[in-house]
């Protein structure tokens, strides 16, 4: 998925002279081919995120479409004000490719784990947020990102996820009494959950939203009609993230028979463990088994 996101920037740049790439100080040989073929539109600007976002805004104001790329925590927290004022306030087409959304950088600790990025970006008017589940979906959304007017935040997962999204629409499995709504790579866990719930005699649907903002409210409400329990699953703190956006829709909509909502995600404290993404998902009960247990516990109450 990560490689695909950059491949797409290269492909976009080949056909559209407005596209520029700006990295901070990313890995050696990133986009070598791009740099070779289009050196004027390739920038490696150093570890200076506040500057880079402002510079990207200046380029965007002058007619370019910059794709800015670095680690998710740095491209959100370090330069938040530049994103707010220089990019979002003027609705400029600066596209942020955020490596390692979620627990990807588990072994590198809390400075590198982007578990608040959706919330931070969701607060900003004009911002789009996309969180693909695999390389196929990354390609589809990256190609669309040029035409999404204004800024886009691309949450990039670890990579090497199995390609499962080909030919799918948002509704993967028709809702039963239960409906899981996922975003990003959590769909890979959710598919396991659905099998486990089936063994318990619970029919569960699956709605996957790779575009978190603007959220497709009508689509969500359409699929909630006969559902008793909605579960949101995200690799992000529960407060202010993806599940919160679903909660807001449910809360603001006048339902005759509103479903219950269970939001699953990370707790409101810093992740103080290392290990791997997989181990942390298990620890926080966000792998298929953990999610299933949390749902069953909720249903027993």
């Amino acid at each position: 998925m990560r490689e695909k996101s950059l491949e797409c920037v290269y492909e976009l740049a080949k056909r559209d002279s407005r596209i520029v790439y700006i990295g901070s100080d990313v890995g050696a040989e990133t986009l070598e081919q791009f740099k070779k073929e289009m050196p004027d539109r390739f920038f490696m600007e150093g570890i200076s995120e506040a500057h880079i976002i402002g510079m990207a805004a200046g380029l965007a104001k002058s007619g370019y479409i910059p794709y800015v790329n670095t680690i998710a925590t740095f491209i959100t927290r370090r330069c938040y004000e530049q994103i707010v004022i220089d990019v979002c306030l003027q609705n400029l087409p600066v596209k942020l490719i955020a490596n390692g959304g979620g627990l990807v950088y588990a072994p590198l600790g809390p400075t590198h784990m982007a578990v608040d990025d959706i919330g931070l970006m969701r607060l900003l008017p004009n911002m789009h947020i996309i969180a693909p589940c695999d390389a196929n979906e990354m390609e589809k959304l990256m190609m669309q990102s040029v035409d999404m007017s204004g800024p886009v935040y691309v949450r990039v997962g670890k990579g090497n996820e199995p390609n499962i999204s080909s030919g799918k629409s948002s509704l993967w499995i028709e809702p039963g009494e239960v409906l899981i709504i996922t975003t990003g790579v959590m769909i890979h866990q959710a598919l396991g959950v659905i099998d486990l719930l089936k063994e318990k005699g619970i029919s569960c649907g699956l709605l996957h939203l790779s575009i978190i903002k603007p959220i497709n409210k009508d689509l969500i409400l359409t699929h909630l009609k006969d559902v008793e329990l909605v579960i949101t699953v995200e690799e992000h703190v529960k407060s202010g993230g993806f599940g919160s956006s679903i909660l807001e829709i449910l809360s603001d909509h006048r339902h005759t028979n509103p479903p219950k909502l269970l939001r699953l995600g990370l707790p409101d404290h810093f992740v103080e463990l290392y290990g791997s993404q997989k181990e942390l998902l298990q620890y926080f009960r966000l792998d298929a088994n953990g999610i299933t247990q949390q749902i069953l516990q909720y249903l027993v109450k």
Partner: peptide
Amino acid sequence: AVAVGVAL
């Protein structure tokens, strides 16, 4: 920063 972007 913005001026650098515009000048570029």
